[in-house]
């Protein structure tokens, strides 16, 4: 098995496309960093403070204005609660222009990364059929199931490598743009009306980990389509269309009860973590169960077709 995985890794790594993808990812991280530092205006104008006291002071100024709409008033009250917590615990919020805020903004880029892993996952079996190499691959004394598994594992290793590249590129470019810092912070957020206080590293692991589950499920989907239909373009196209429109589909059809059993109602786990689930009444447990079910359906479909197929091309 380790030999098989090394083989698949070699086939992914030695392709020209792989290095281009890694380079593109680094370029995008740098571009996002430059844009957010120089091109975009600083967000959250009313709360433009740096320390918790400054924030609270600004909030009080806002509140002193008469006839505020109720929504704004509620928002201000929440912010007040949050910054009072900072004061109480004697911790500082992470400054806006800081390597760590850059790091915490970038899980969105995992979606960008997903495009690359979808391409790799879609091609790992379909590509062998297209080039005809599948024949010399499958006449070895190795059960087909093991070959399929090693291909999936190698694809996931590629995804992990890309994640590592993303994190490294983010941190290094963050240091260059916002100054070097290894100071530890805590991430304090209001989620569904209550305070959540997490150490920075734990929070980072959580957001990137959750963004990664979306990647795993879409890459496995592409892997399955590529295996079943032996067509890389179809697998890439279908996966990417669903990746980018899945959320809209759920949004458009959210009146229907069955929509909560649709995969895309659960792929954006990051939104759920930030307290803004796509659908009401979706719990993390339900999401986990549904994601796992889809994962096993994809894996089973790929497995059944691949291990039984007559190779005739």
């Amino acid at each position: 098995m380790p030999g098989l995985i090394r083989n698949e890794w070699m086939k992914i790594y030695r392709r020209k496309g792989t290095k281009v993808m890694a380079a593109l990812l680094i370029a995008v991280v740098i571009a996002v960093g430059l844009l957010s530092k120089y091109a975009l205006p600083a967000p959250d104008e009313p709360f433009d403070g740096q320390t918790a006291e400054e924030h609270l002071h600004l909030i009080e100024q806002e509140q002193s204005v008469n006839d505020l709409p109720p929504a704004v008033e509620a928002e201000l009250a929440e912010q007040q609660q949050l910054y009072n917590y900072y004061l109480e615990k004697d911790v500082e919020p992470i400054p806006n222009e800081h390597v760590w805020s850059f790091l915490l903004d970038n899980p969105q880029l995992v979606t960008f990364m997903t495009m690359f892993t979808v391409i790799v996952g879609a091609g790992t079996v379909a590509g062998e059929h297209a080039s005809g190499t599948i024949k010399l691959l499958l006449i070895r004394p190795v059960k087909r199931g093991k070959i399929l598994l090693s291909k999936w594992i190698a694809t996931m290793l590629f995804a992990l490598m890309m994640l590592f590249v993303l994190l490294l590129a983010t941190v290094v470019s963050g240091w260059v743009l916002y100054g070097f810092s290894v100071e530890s912070y805590r991430v304090i957020e209001l989620v569904n009306g209550s305070i959540r206080d997490m150490p920075l590293w734990e929070y980072t692991a959580a957001v990137y980990g959750l963004a990664f589950t979306e990647l795993v499920i879409f890459t496995t989907f592409a892997f399955m389509i590529g295996t079943v239909f032996r067509n890389q373009s179809l697998a890439i196209g279908l996966s990417l269309v669903l990746l980018f429109t899945g959320g809209q589909i759920v949004y458009l059809l959210n009146d229907y009860e069955w929509i909560k059993y649709l995969l895309f109602a659960h792929t954006n786990t990051l939104q759920q973590f930030q307290g803004e689930p796509l659908l009401d009444g979706v719990t993390p447990l339900l999401s986990t169960l549904i994601l796992l079910s889809y994962f096993f359906i994809f894996a089973a479909a790929a497995w059944i077709v691949f291990t039984r197929r007559d190779v005739a091309d």
Partner: peptide, 25 residues
Amino acid sequence: AVVENPEMYDYLTGRENLIHYQRMM
């Protein structure tokens, strides 16, 4: 065996192709 044309990995060297099959046997 060689089944029909010997189609191998174009982007790998001849030696890498052989190493690939060697790991499977």
